[in-house]
């Protein structure tokens, strides 16, 4: 059995030690937010926070997380980033959006007033194919104005 804490709740899951966190979140804990995109850390659809830092859950073995705090979009509780994404309708198909929200949340928790170039550089690990980039950037700027606390 493997122990991990997700959104403040402790879990023990029956998973093989090499299982990436993504599959435990989706398959064992029934959480939909983190998405499989590439399995290679190239697209960010699987982004979650581990101790406040964005990680690619598709590449993070679940066995290294026992003492660490995992946060997913299900645990944000409607934070300023989620509200801003809703407000500016920053989604088309939306498959990348949960990962975008998680990465933007990490950015704004550490850097409440990022410059435009900082936002773009920080978000560059996450891909969107529908071309919703301008709205995502606008949502991050709007959320920054409202303040995002851990």
């Amino acid at each position: 059995m493997i122990r991990l804490t997700v959104n403040g709740q402790q879990h023990e899951v029956d998973a093989e030690a090499d299982t990436p966190l993504l599959y435990v979140l989706r398959d064992d804990l029934g959480l939909n937010g983190a998405k499989f995109g590439c399995g290679l850390g190239q697209c960010g659809a699987c982004t979650v926070l581990v101790d406040g830092q964005p990680v690619f859950s598709c590449l993070t073995p679940v066995s290294v997380l026992a003492e660490r705090q995992v946060r997913t979009i299900e645990g944000l509780g409607g934070n300023a980033v989620q509200r801003a994404f809703e407000d500016v309708q920053a989604a088309q198909c939306g498959y990348c959006i949960a990962g975008m929200v998680m990465r933007a949340t990490a950015l704004l928790e550490h850097n409440p007033h990022p410059h435009e170039d900082e936002i773009r550089a920080y978000m560059s690990g996450n891909l969107c194919r529908c071309g919703t980039h301008m709205r995502i950037l606008e949502a991050v700027r709007q959320a920054a104005g409202q303040g995002v606390k851990p």
Partner: peptide
């Protein structure tokens, strides 16, 4: 009009065939 499908996509709701269980 705000899109009816966006809220689930922003909260981890079941939104895609990938999410079916």
């Amino acid at each position: 009009m705000p899109r009816v499908d966006i809220p689930a996509k922003l909260t981890g709701g079941q939104a895609y065939v990938q999410d079916m269980r």
